[in-house]
Deep mutational scan, measured.
Amino acid sequence: TLFEALYDYEARTEDDLSFHKGEKFQILNSSEGDWWEVRSLTTGETGYIPSPYLA
């Protein structure tokens, strides 16, 4: 399933992933509550992002 970022986000820890509004992601793991592990389709990087920032 693909999701798109609604807002920009700046990583706060080394496990987080910074991203920009409009960036698209593949969800790798959504079992961690509000923090999902994703792969950016723009950069190929993986990390955790806050799920409320996605649509």
Rank of each mutant, 00 (worst) to 15 (best):
S18F: 06
Y7T: 05
R39M: 09
L17E: 02
D16R: 13
S40H: 07
F25A: 15
A55Q: 13
E4A: 05
T13I: 05
A55T: 10
K21P: 03
G33Y: 08
G22I: 01
W36C: 03
T13H: 13
W35M: 09
P50I: 04
L6F: 13
R12A: 10
L6C: 14
T42A: 13
G22V: 01
N29R: 06
E4Q: 08
D8E: 08
K24L: 14
L54E: 06
G22Y: 06
F3L: 06
G22Q: 00
S30V: 10
S30Q: 11
L41Q: 04
L6Y: 06
R39F: 05
W35P: 02
L28Y: 14
G47F: 08
E14H: 11
K21F: 13
R39E: 10
L41P: 01
S30F: 12
T43C: 02
D15V: 12
S30H: 08
P50D: 04
R39K: 09
E4V: 13
E32M: 13
E37T: 11
P50K: 07
E32I: 10
L6K: 12
T43W: 01
W35N: 11
P50S: 05
A55E: 12
A5C: 07
T13F: 15
E10Y: 08
S30Y: 15
S40V: 03
L54I: 09
G44R: 00
S51F: 11
G33T: 11
L2Q: 06
Y53W: 07
E37H: 13
L17H: 02
Q26A: 08
G44V: 04
D34T: 08
Q26N: 04
T46R: 08
T42Q: 09
L2A: 05
Y7E: 06
W35T: 15
E4S: 02
G44Q: 04
G22N: 03
S18Y: 04
Q26W: 12
T13V: 09
I49F: 01
L28S: 01
F25G: 01
E45Y: 06
W35R: 13
Y53C: 15
L28T: 03
S51L: 05
S40R: 12
T42F: 06
Q26M: 12
G44K: 01
E10A: 07
W36G: 00
Y48F: 11
E32V: 09
N29I: 11
E23T: 04
E14I: 09
W35H: 05
G33V: 08
N29L: 04
G22D: 03
A11L: 14
G44N: 06
A5V: 04
I27S: 01
F19G: 01
H20N: 08
